[in-house]
Design a protein around this nucleic acid. Structure first.
Lengths: 163, 163
DNA sequence: GTACCTGCAAATGATTTGCGTCTGG
DNA sequence: CCAGACGCAAATCATTTGCAGGTAC
């Protein structure tokens, strides 16, 4: 019963690690130190990090770990259904170890992002068969807006022209 | 009253072109042939093309047009609010000249994408102030699932391991 | 022991930048 | 005319691939 939660987000990180190990065993994927480290770093981070951010974090305690290895492991974890990509409009790939259904708040100015759960979306039924035979499986909802610090700052006018 | 619609999507392309020209004039942006061509190509295409797709299409009738110019113009059009980026989980930037509120159907296998309008979201009120002072402005909703051709195909198991 | 992984180096793909020339208003 | 755009080449950033040696099971 000694459940470890990440204090910032109340993530059941131990559950996730157990699921990671179970999945590796049942899918006959080798449980290497590299894979565990990458998964742990993702599970502990509620901030939707990029591959490079994970790499830099791990590099502190593991200076020899190469970036391509992190990329390969991330790809594997996605295919195993242990983490997912976060949809965004630009910039490098962002990752999410939270596989529970949830929405995202995204700041349109600085890209700041936060998990958010609204019962509304849990209740909203998926249209089962839409136009042209499309088979809907799930909603991906992002609420775009301004985070507190960008809202406090004076609104800047985007500069066009003049390269 | 001779409103030209794009037959595939009933897009009021003429309205959009007029808005493009008005915006250029009012923002004192030069109305060049390159900018008009890029905007027209985007306005005519309901398929959320990449920058390179637009470039290749224009290149047929304008072989000297360089790709970096298309990138710069796309950036300008986004900053002018005339087109927008489409959120996605990976791959190159995709563009959308339809600035009306709408949702997207996205095939999780092949990436096929289609505009979709559901009155549900037009009615759903935005939470005005969410956790931590986030100021919500709009929903971005993607319905993920299987397009008809990927649904017809036999489901493939993703291969993990063995590089 | 051996198939699966990792580590390294190099390739590819997407996007941006610097700078000299040209042109729309 | 001349600031703002374009065209070209080269740089940068993100991600992937090939291959040889290492290690989990």
């Amino acid at each position: 019963m000694s459940q470890v939660f990440n204090l910032r987000s109340l993530r059941p990180v131990n559950d996730w690690l157990a699921r990671f190990e179970d999945t590796c065993r049942s899918r006959k994927i080798r449980l290497t130190a590299q894979r565990r480290a990458v998964f742990e770093a993702l599970a502990a981070d509620p901030g939707h990090p990029t591959v490079e951010e994970i790499y830099l974090r791990l590099k502190k305690n593991w200076p020899s770990l190469p970036l391509p290895t992190v990329y390969r492991i991330v790809e594997d974890l996605i295919n195993l259904g242990l983490i997912r990509r976060v949809a965004s409009e630009n910039g490098p790939l962002r990752l999410d170890a939270n596989m529970e259904p949830h929405q995202h708040l995204v700041c349109r100015v600085c890209g700041w992002m936060k998990d958010w759960r609204d019962p509304l979306w849990a209740q909203t039924p998926l249209p089962s068969l839409l136009s042209g035979g499309f088979m809907a499986e799930e909603y991906d909802v992002r609420v775009s807006g301004l985070c507190r610090s960008c809202a406090d700052r004076k609104p800047k006018v985007k500069k066009i022209g003049s390269y």
